[in-house]
Nucleic acid binder design. Structure first.
Lengths: 135, 135
DNA sequence: AGTCGTGATGAGAACGGTTGTCAACTCGAC
DNA sequence: GTCGAGTTGACAACCGTTCTCATCACGACT
């Protein structure tokens, strides 16, 4: 009954290594399905459900950033910073820049409080077209 | 070839009036399905597809605000201001306050430009729990 | 190296929101 | 009243994501 004996160990499997590897290959946000396809063509086939599960787990533990694309699907990218931050994402290729809005956090909290709302959470993402994709 | 003869008139139908009426009843953001259900119990039955189509049309013309809920579904609310603005939404009841982040717009544009991104668009929504729902 | 328990996997079904299909309908201009 | 084009509704199709469950394989412990 002591915590020194983790009851739920996270096992390292070929599949998890593959997903992590594929994510490490790029700076761009990509969907679970894109990742699944990339792994398949790479010869590192992993079940789609597993890709979803793995990404979810990694997102929970803060190993990947998740954000909802403009069409509603979830996009993932390996996380470079563990602190809270936002993104400037290219809507064409998915390339992203991590940014922080120094004032945003404070602004969100104060606006929330001013209207009597608690547990304020905020969504702040910037979409644009990067130089390469602009042509 | 002159604009004085609109080729595609928007017709006022019982269904559109019903959807508009249901939206006018509340200040809260609600989903297409909630609206559909509300209309049904009200005796003003409208097909689900029609509710979706009508909301989409109204959103395009700026008559309703749309935002994507935390679970990914689209939420609609009658629009009070046509100018660009953001929302502070109660994640429990959907009640919302229209807000504007004076600095947000400028900040988004400058960050985008600084990284060579064009056509910057931004998503800024605040979620919280309102007084009534806090208990 | 062999055992074993439990977490992990994958194929496919299920789900939930949304959009497409198409024949029947109805608004509204004439 | 007529007529045509926009509109509607029941239902199928879509699509991303999650669930199911039998089978597999880490890895801790011999």
């Amino acid at each position: 009954m002591n915590d020194t004996t983790p009851r739920t160990a996270v096992r390292m499997t070929r599949q998890r290594a593959a997903v992590a590897g594929a994510l490490g290959d790029t700076d761009e946000f990509c969907s679970a399905q894109q990742l699944h396809e990339r792994l398949r063509t790479r010869g590192d086939a992993v079940g789609l459900a597993t890709v979803y599960r793995t990404l979810q787990t990694m997102a929970d533990s803060g190993d990947v950033d998740v954000l909802r694309g403009e069409d509603g699907e979830n996009l993932y990218r390996r996380c470079e910073r563990s602190e809270h931050h936002h993104h400037l994402v290219c809507r064409v290729c998915g390339r992203a820049v991590e940014i922080d809005g120094p004032s945003v956090e404070a602004w969100a909290a104060s606006v929330g409080a001013a209207h009597g709302f608690a547990d304020i959470d905020h969504t702040v993402e910037l979409w644009g077209t990067c130089v390469q994709c602009r042509r």
